[in-house]
Design a protein around this nucleic acid. Structure first.
Lengths: 202, 202
DNA sequence: CTTATTTGGTTCACAGTGTCAACATTGTTT
DNA sequence: AAACAATGTTGACACTGTGAACCAAATAAG
C-alpha cells in the first residue's frame, strides 16, 4: 500500500497552508513553489493543477494572511472592557493591526506584497468574517455615530487612520525596527493616541 | 583595440545605476545581478569584486532610492511660496514623500525593501544633503518653534507623521491603487490635512 | 626598468528555481 | 464497460545566484 494515495484530496488548501507557513518563516519571498510541494510530499508540478503560476499561489497566501490580520484585530477587540466606547474600539483596532504585524512580520508582509487592483478593498474575508477594512470602517462609523467625527470627514478619516496604522507597522518592522520591544508599546499607544486626537478634533 | 578596456574604471557606480534603473522598471525584485552585468556589458561575476552578494547591491540601490526620495521632498519644498509657514512646510514634505512614491513606485519600494537594523535612521544622505528623515524632523521642529506643537509630543509626532505619510503612500500604491489619479490629489491633501490638524490640536 | 603584488574582470561549474510538454493514474459519467 | 475529465508525475529547459580557478592590468618594490 502506498504511504499516501495518488490523489491528495485537498491539495489546494494544503498548498496554501504550506505557503502560509513559508511566508511566516521568511516573508513573501520565501514562498517557493518547489519547497511547498516538497513539504507536502508531492511533485513540484502538482501545484499547476490548482494555480496557473506561482503568483497565483502568492495571492491565495495573501488572502489567508489578510484573514489572519482581521482575526488579530477581532481578538484585540474582544479584550477591551467596554465595547461601546468608540475611541477604545478604534484604538483596539489599531493595536490589533500593529500587533499582528509585529507578531507575524512575514505574514504581514505577504498580505500586502501582491499588487491588487480592486478599486475598493473587501469588507469581508472569504470566510464571511468582517475583514480588516470592514473593522476599521465600523470603528470610524462608531466614532461618527457618537458625534466624535464629523460625517464629511469620514472618508478622509478612514484613509488617514488606515494609513497611519499601516505606516506605523511598516516603520516598526523597517527603519524603526531597532527600538527596544519595551519602548514599542508606549510608542504605539502614543502614535495611535495622536491619530484619534486628530480625527476627533473639530 | 578592444571596444572597451578590460577595466571598467567605475564599475561599482555603474552597477548601482543599472540596479536603480531596474528597480525603477520593476521594483526591488527586478534587480537581478546577471541582468545588471549584462546591461553594462560585463561578465556576471564582475559584480562580486564590488559587492559580497546581491543583497549588498540591493542595499546600495536602496540608499540611492532614499536619496532620490529626499530630493523629491526638497523639490516640493522649493515650490511653496512661503517657506516660513511651518504648516505649509510640513504639508510640502508630506506631498514630496507621497508624490515620489506615486511617480517612482519601483524605486520607492526598493528604498524600503531591505531590512535595515540601524536604531535611528540617518538624518543625511551619503552626499551630504538632508535626508527624508532629516527634512521631516526639521518640519516638525519648525512646528514646535512656532508653538503649534507641544515639545513633549515631538517624538510621537515624528513617528506619527512619518507613519501617516508612509502608510498613505503604501496604500495608494497597493489596496487603494485603483482610485483615479484625479481623485488622488484631493485625497492626499485631505489626509495630510488631518495629520496636521491632529499634530497641532491641543 | 624590471619584477612582484594587489585589484578588477573572466570562465567554468553547480545547485536551485519557475514553467512547459508529454505521460500516468485515478475518479466520474455515460 | 468505456470514454472522459481531473489530478499527479517525469523529464526537460532557460534562468538565477554564487563559488573556484584563472587571467589581465595597474601599481608598488627592488
Amino acid at each position: 500500500m502506498p504511504t499516501h494515495p495518488y490523489h491528495h484530496g485537498s491539495l489546494r488548501s494544503a498548498l496554501v497552508d504550506a505557503g502560509v507557513q513559508l511566508a511566516r518563516e521568511g516573508g513573501p519571498g520565501a514562498i517557493v513553489l518547489r519547497e511547498v510541494a516538497r513539504r507536502i510530499g508531492v511533485s513540484p508540478n502538482a501545484a499547476y493543477r490548482h494555480f496557473a503560476a506561482l503568483p497565483e499561489l502568492s495571492d491565495a497566501v495573501a488572502e489567508a494572511a489578510l484573514a489572519a490580520l482581521a482575526a488579530s484585530m477581532r481578538r484585540e477587540l474582544d479584550a477591551i472592557p467596554d465595547r461601546d466606547d468608540p475611541l477604545m474600539v478604534l484604538l483596539a483596532v489599531g493595536r490589533g493591526y500593529v500587533h499582528f504585524a509585529l507578531d507575524e512580520p512575514g505574514l504581514f508582509a505577504a498580505a500586502f506584497s501582491r499588487p491588487k487592483d480592486h478599486i475598493d478593498p473587501e469588507l469581508y474575508t472569504p470566510d464571511g468574517q468582517r475583514s480588516a477594512t470592514g473593522l476599521l470602517h465600523d470603528a470610524l462609523d462608531g466614532l461618527a455615530a457618537a458625534g466624535l467625527l464629523v460625517p464629511q470627514d469620514r472618508d478622509a478619516a478612514i484613509t488617514m487612520a488606515w494609513a497611519s496604522v499601516h505606516g506605523l507597522a511598516m516603520l516598526l518592522l523597517g527603519p524603526l525596527g531597532g527600538v527596544a520591544p519595551a519602548d514599542r508599546e508606549p510608542m504605539i499607544d502614543a502614535a495611535l493616541g495622536l491619530v484619534c486626537r486628530g480625527l476627533t478634533s473639530r
